[in-house]
Every structure is written in structure tokens, then in C-alpha cells.
Design a protein around this nucleic acid. Structure first.
Lengths: 204, 204
DNA sequence: ACCTGAACACCGTTCAAGT
DNA sequence: ACCTGAACACCGTTCAAGT
């Protein structure tokens, strides 16, 4: 059985042509508007940019948060794909580091500071689950390779993944790749050399 | 000459008794409301909780952001005081680590996730400047003590300071001290042992 | 089946009228 | 000098009316 309960589920076939076009333009307009004005860009502006009426936004996305979630979902899935590709790399340590670079670059490119955040749909939760599984695998390989300390889990790395962008997010005239500095520091903290025991067990 | 241009400057003498009381109750009510409902608790609710009319809020704080800034300012100054006290500790490395513990605990206690954030008044900027200077001194001492790597600055530590709370902020059923785990990992990244060269120079 | 735009509730902010 | 509450502009969301 094909699930079709909600209209904002994700790329679904059997949308009327105009509806499909509107949905796509809405997502593009929202991504641009959020990138320019931040998350409190108004739904009215997004609708105008997409060339539809305000009501149409809410036909496709029940809520502004659902619209945000749809965008986040795309990014999370793209990142998962990158991670899965890197699982086949030779150097497991370098693969994990490159994954973290890709994650940070993606978040830098178009303001994705809202990966962490309030907009959590079931779909996003599931996608984050798949991403976590991928990060788990990357970390396991890196650990076997001696590139990551024994007491660090995939969930730890998943959580720390967003920190470099967060940390540099509010530095006024920061160069766009300042996050590299803090990723390097944090990654040094993940290495086995000179690791001190951790005071609290990992979550979930 | 005493500056008295704006009314929301900070604890200022020569407020009428009722005004001073209202201001204090407003700050307390706002802190509580923000802690409970997050930063988009409504000004109306805050006014009701403080027992004043909505208009009174804007007499004391020109803007909702200025109200937030006034609270943030208190916390930043308290943290600066803790840092200055720790400058007189024997073990400079332990002092820096304890400072970071105090910072994280303060942020955990009442949701201070908005230290970083949009609410930046001149007053907050100045207070953050003083806090940065204090962190600089703590880091310099720790570096001289061999507890922190040579290529890390006070600004680096200032920026990384908030990461442990951020990282754990969105973990659903997280124990309230989970931040300790990520502070430990990041602090290991700040140590001289096994440090790899950093790819980008520090900011400002 | 989908789109539109008027209407609603809510929110931050302003300000004339009060004491 | 300060407080009050009605009024305003704006925003997310709903929905009856259209195609």
C-alpha cells in the first residue's frame, strides 16, 4: 500500500502538473528566502517569490515548520548519501574527517543553522535516524583504524557535527571557512592520542 | 558626567520607587517566562506575570530584544566575575576547566541558549568584551602552565565555550549534565598532547 | 483537485489619556 | 515621571468561494 495521507510528505507522484510546479517553486523560494533573511522570513514573501497566493503555501505544507522540515529533509538525505559514499574510502580516518568537512560546507553554503532546531517532522526524524546510522558506521571504521578514541560513539560525532558552524555563526566579519579551525580542534579531541576519560556516558 | 540617555541602560539610581520595582519584577518575570517557554514567550505574558500593563514593558525596554539583552547582560557579567576570581587559583589548567564548567552550568540552569544570538546591545557587546579579556587571561595562564596548546587563543575558547550546551540542547531525554561529556572532548582538543596544526588563523 | 484572497487570532510596538 | 489600555501593523493559519 502506498502511503498518501498527508500532502506534504515529499516528492510524490500523481500531483496535478500545476501543483507539482508550485510545490517545487515554493521549496526553492523558501530556501532562498531563508538563506537571505533567516528563518523568520515571512510566508507571504515566500509565496510572492514563488508566484502563488499565501493560501497555496499551506495547501502544500500544513505549517511553516513543515515547510522548513521539507528543506531540512533534503539536506539531511544529501548528507547521508555523501556519508555512504565515504564508507567505501580506503583511509577510514580521513573519510570521517572529510565527511565532517562536507557537513560543515553544506551548512555554510546556504544557511542551514536550523538543522538542529524546532522543525522536526516524523520524516526528518527518520532521515536523521538514517544519517546517524551512517555516522555510526563511519566512526566504527575510523575507530578500528585507530583514528578515533575508543570511548566515542557515532552519536557523539553526530551531535558534535554542527558545533563548528554554530561556534562561528555569530562572529561578525568571520572568513567563511573559519569553521575549519574549530572542526580541527574538536577532531583533535576525538583522536586517541592524549585522550582523558569521559565523565558521562553517551546518550541513547 | 553621568550618562542617562536611555532608560533601559542597567541598574540606574533615581528611578521612581514604583518604576524601580516594576523594572525588577519585569526582569524576573521575563527570565522565568523565557526559561519556561523559550525566547518567544509573549511580551503580554511577561507583563501579566510582572503585574503591569503591556505598555510598561516598552517604557523600560525599548524593544523585546532589549529586554532579552538586559538579562543576558546580567549573566555575562556574573560569568566575568567568576572568571576573574579563578584567575587567582593555583592550578591554571584546572582553573580554565572549572571556568568552562561554571559557564555551562549557568547556561543549563536557566535556559541561556540565547547568549549567542540576535539580542546584542552595545551594553552586551561591551560586557562580552570584558568577558573575552578575562577568558584571554585564563587561557594565557593555562598555556604558560602547559595545559593548553600554543596555537589556541582566548577568543577560540570564548567561542567554543557555548558548544557543549548547544550540542546537547536538542537531545530529547538527555540527562542535564550531558554537556560534561562534550566539554571533556573539546577540552581534550585544546590540550597540547597530540595537537595537529590548525588550518585557519583565529578571528579578530 | 487545486488555487485564491478575505478573514481571524495573535504578537510586538506606539501613543494619547490618565495619575 | 510613570502607567495604562486602546489602536496599529504584521504575521501564521483557516476557509468559503472560485476554476
Amino acid at each position: 500500500m502506498t502511503v498518501r495521507s498527508t500532502c506534504y510528505r515529499s516528492p510524490v507522484r500523481s500531483l496535478r502538473v500545476d501543483a507539482a510546479r508550485n510545490r517545487a517553486q515554493l521549496l526553492a523560494a523558501a530556501a532562498d528566502e531563508f538563506a537571505e533573511r533567516g528563518l523568520d522570513a515571512s510566508v507571504a514573501d515566500i509565496a510572492r517569490r514563488a508566484g502563488v497566493a499565501k493560501g497555496t503555501v499551506f495547501r502544500h505544507f500544513a505549517t511553516k515548520d513543515d515547510l522548513i522540515a521539507a528543506i531540512v529533509l533534503d539536506r539531511v538525505e544529501a548528507l547521508t548519501a555523501s556519508g555512504e559514499r565515504l564508507l567505501r574510502a580506503d583511509d577510514a580516518g580521513a573519510a570521517l574527517l572529510e565527511f565532517l568537512h562536507i557537513a560543515a560546507e553544506q551548512r555554510q553554503q546556504r544557511d542551514l543553522s536550523f538543522l538542529h532546531g524546532s522543525a522536526t517532522t516524523d520524516g526528518v526524524a527518520r532521515a536523521q535516524g538514517r544519517l546517524t546510522a551512517t555516522v555510526d558506521a563511519l566512526v566504527d571504521r575510523a575507530r578500528d583504524h585507530g583514528a578515533v578514541r575508543d570511548d566515542v560513539t557515532g552519536t557523539d560525532v553526530f551531535l558534535l557535527m554542527c558545533a563548528p558552524n554554530y561556534v562561528t555563526g555569530y562572529v561578525p566579519g568571520a572568513p567563511p571557512d573559519l569553521w575549519r579551525r574549530y572542526l580541527a580542534i574538536i577532531f583533535d579531541g576525538l583522536r586517541p592520542q592524549g585522550a582523558h576519560p569521559l565523565p558521562v556516558p553517551p546518550p541513547s
